[in-house]
């Protein structure tokens, strides 16, 4: 999932050093590194002049920020209303059984991280699972099993 495309210095230089760009910086660091490490958080504090406690507060308030390294494959299960009515929770339960970790956690082999998301806006495809940014429509436990097997092997 991580696309090491920019160095941390390069990211820090993208925006003026003011508190309003804090979220931009956190987003860009996460995009490049997959998560925000304590070291990169310290650099962001220095750049924006925001105290570390407040940067940490922002990073934990918003759901999209990750503070630990993520699995190679990112599985997001949509639990929007349409997906809920059509069995999204069943997919979540199955992932928990299969991967043996809680939502938001990463499997010990660092292969998979799975989370639920609140509506990806693709309700006609319910229940939807998004794996590594690709949408899988009308997911069933069977289809999911196949997909996970395929990803485990590469």
């Amino acid at each position: 999932m991580t696309t090491q495309e920019a160095s941390i210095d390069e990211i820090l230089e993208r925006y003026p050093g003011s508190p309003e760009y804090l979220i931009f910086l956190l987003q860009d660091v996460q995009k490049s590194y997959g998560y925000i490490s304590p070291d990169s958080m310290q650099l962001i504090c220095d750049r924006t002049g925001v105290p570390e406690s407040q940067v940490y507060s922002v990073a934990t308030f918003y759901q999209s920020f990750r503070l630990e390294p993520q699995g190679e494959h990112d599985i997001k299960v949509c639990l929007g209303t349409a997906c809920h009515l059509k069995g999204g929770q069943r997919i979540m339960d199955e992932l928990k059984r299969r991967l043996q970790v809680e939502p938001g956690e990463t499997t010990p082999d660092m292969k998979f991280t799975y989370t639920s998301v609140n509506c990806v806006g693709a309700c006609a495809l319910a229940p939807v699972v998004v794996i590594d940014d690709e949408y899988y429509p009308s997911t069933t436990v069977k289809k999911l099993e196949k997909q996970i097997k395929a990803l485990s092997q590469d």
Binding site: L79, G80, T81, A82, H84, N118, C119, G121, A122, C123
Partner: peptide, 8 residues
């Protein structure tokens, strides 16, 4: 910031 689940 369209957040309502089921709305797109």
């Amino acid at each position: 910031d369209e957040g309502d689940p089921g709305a797109f």
